[in-house]
């Protein structure tokens, strides 16, 4: 028996499915089912999130270092320093990811009209990240819960 957070989340999902779904009014049943699926996919995400997001940030900073314009060079240095710093909380890491994404968006906007090959590198990188995250959702194929929109 485990009392860790992920096991707890999955246990609550099981409880919702087994005992709550059929005891709520019909119009709420699909909401309770969705709540259980959300808990399950959140558990999948949380079990790997720190490692995956850290790797995503590293991937993107490498690409940015190779393709940003001079105005953004210091941003790459600052963000890389944050990424290499002390171990972050999940929320701090998410803030860093958001900041890296802002830089990536600026860079891709410029590349969209100037450099097809470099843009393709970003597309492949971000597409790969999204594909790995597909198990964190339960709507489209490639998900653990296997339901549809």
């Amino acid at each position: 028996m485990s009392i860790d957070g992920l096991t707890t989340v999955e246990g609550i999902a099981d409880f919702l499915d087994a005992e709550i779904v059929n005891s709520v009014p019909g119009e709420l049943r699909s909401e309770v089912r969705a709540a259980a699926k959300l808990l399950r996919t959140s558990a999948v995400e949380l079990s790997v999130r720190y490692r995956e997001v850290g790797a995503e940030i590293d991937d993107l900073l490498v690409l940015c270092a190779a393709h940003v314009v001079a105005d953004d060079a210091s941003a790459v240095i600052d963000l890389s320093a944050r990424a290499a710093g002390e171990r972050m909380s999940l929320r701090e890491q998410e803030r860093l990811r958001t900041d890296v994404h802002d830089l990536v968006s600026r860079t891709m906007a410029r590349l969209t009209v100037s450099n097809d090959r470099a843009l393709a590198e970003f597309l492949r990188c971000l597409g790969g990240h999204a594909a790995r995250r597909s198990t964190w959702q339960a709507v489209f194929p490639g998900n653990p819960a296997g339901v549809s929109a």
Partner: peptide
């Protein structure tokens, strides 16, 4: 919320 998380797909 479930649909929102599906934006990764």
């Amino acid at each position: 919320r479930m649909l929102g998380r599906a934006t990764v797909w």
